[in-house]
Simulated scan of single mutants.
Amino acid sequence: MRIALVTDSYLPVLGGIELHVRDLADQLAAAGHAVDVLTRTPAGPDADPVGDVRVVRLGRGDRLAGHLADADVVHVHSSVVSPLAWRAAALARTLAVPALVTVHSMVSHGTARPMAVALRRATASGVRWSAVSRAVADPLSRTVGVPVALLPNGIDPTEWRDCHAHRVDAPEFTVVSALRFAARKRPLALVRVLADLRDRLPADVPLRAVLVGDGRLLPAVRRKLAATGLADQVELPGRLDRAGVQRVLTAADAYVAPARLESFGLAALEARCAGVPVVAMAASGVTEFVRHDVEGLLAADDADAARLLHVLATDPERRERIRRHNVDTDPQVTWPQVLAETLRQYAAAGAPVGVTV
């Protein structure tokens, strides 16, 4: 098939949607499909690699319809506000091209309004809908008024198991998180959780944390760390590529995902596959691959997150049990499973896939 993947944001921006679309494009191309990635994100300092996936970076005035008309299926990847993606969904319907919309962000009552206004009237019933987690799918279905299938992000666990093989044991209890420093991801709340954890820890258990990422709240995080006396215990290495995150995870005793509105949590999934116990919010999409006291621990709120991190810090046998399970057991979202489900969703949208729906 000829497949058009549409995303407002793409590499060189590093984030869950951007990395997932890149990996999905590679998986589809490896399976023999012709794949175009359509985006508004400008190229970085390095040219796009020449390979099996064509990246089309649309400028002002470029005609999106011309890139969609010849596709066998249009796969739209939407966040809370994604004008290019929504335009592509509407155009696909007009062009009678099968379309699948995958929503990657939580769409609570307030945040769903732009999507509802953009899509509901003309498009909602004319495309196939999916979401990366049940936490996204249920409220999304109420917003668009149609069924929403589950289509999670995918991962190759073998890429991350080397983190465990090269594990570095340190005297400190090391907490890692990789996140965008934006209000939705709650980096300031994470600092408060770390301060609470430090106060709970016995004197003979030193704390170290590494918060990977960048964003407009980074200066506020630095100030908060200084005000709570954590500046010397928390490292802020900035944005790292996949290899850089893997290096950080080799020393991690726990990974924490503080966002309540975490739609999926690809970075948490990567940590889980690296063997690291994950602490996340029980109402978030991380529950697609983390069960309480199996792959990690699920918190009711910030105080509970600090309590559960304290449990991991002071119970090395539980920490090692979770770590061993994570290393020895694949999640249910490996790429062969996710690619097969993606093709089933394309077929359900009307694409000539030739698979059973």
Rank of each mutant, 00 (worst) to 15 (best):
D26F: 01
R63E: 11
D70H: 13
N153V: 00
L312E: 09
V144L: 02
D199W: 01
P147G: 07
P187K: 11
A252I: 13
V168I: 11
D23K: 12
V168Q: 09
V76S: 02
G350V: 01
V355E: 12
A137D: 00
P187H: 07
V353Q: 11
T250R: 15
L58V: 04
P171Y: 00
H292L: 07
A90G: 14
A178R: 08
F181H: 13
C273G: 07
L95I: 06
P219I: 08
L14V: 15
V80S: 10
V353H: 10
P336M: 06
R198D: 15
A88H: 12
D315P: 04
V80W: 00
R324L: 08
T334K: 01
F289S: 05
S108G: 13
P98R: 11
L240E: 03
V103S: 01
R291V: 04
A137T: 04
D62V: 09
C163S: 15
R323Y: 05
A30W: 13
P49T: 04
A220H: 07
D328Y: 03
V193E: 10
T228M: 05
V21M: 06
L236I: 10
G145A: 07
A34L: 15
A280D: 04
R247L: 08
M106G: 11
P49H: 10
V357E: 13
V256K: 13
D304C: 04
I155E: 12
P157V: 07
S125L: 03
A203K: 10
P219A: 12
A347T: 05
P187L: 07
V276Y: 01
G285Q: 13
S79Y: 00
V127W: 08
Q27K: 15
D293T: 14
N153D: 00
A231C: 01
G145C: 00
Q345N: 15
R57F: 09
E18I: 10
G61N: 09
G44V: 08
V210S: 01
V278P: 05
R57Y: 11
S78I: 09
A254F: 07
V136W: 12
R260I: 14
P219Y: 00
A89K: 12
L179Y: 13
D162R: 15
V56C: 11
V168E: 05
D328G: 10
D8P: 00
G215V: 10
E317S: 14
L201H: 09
I322D: 06
L343F: 08
R186V: 01
G285S: 14
S9W: 14
L312I: 10
V327Y: 14
H292K: 10
A271M: 03
P187S: 08
A227G: 11
V176R: 07
L28P: 02
D241V: 09
N326L: 04
T41S: 01
M281T: 13
H77Q: 13
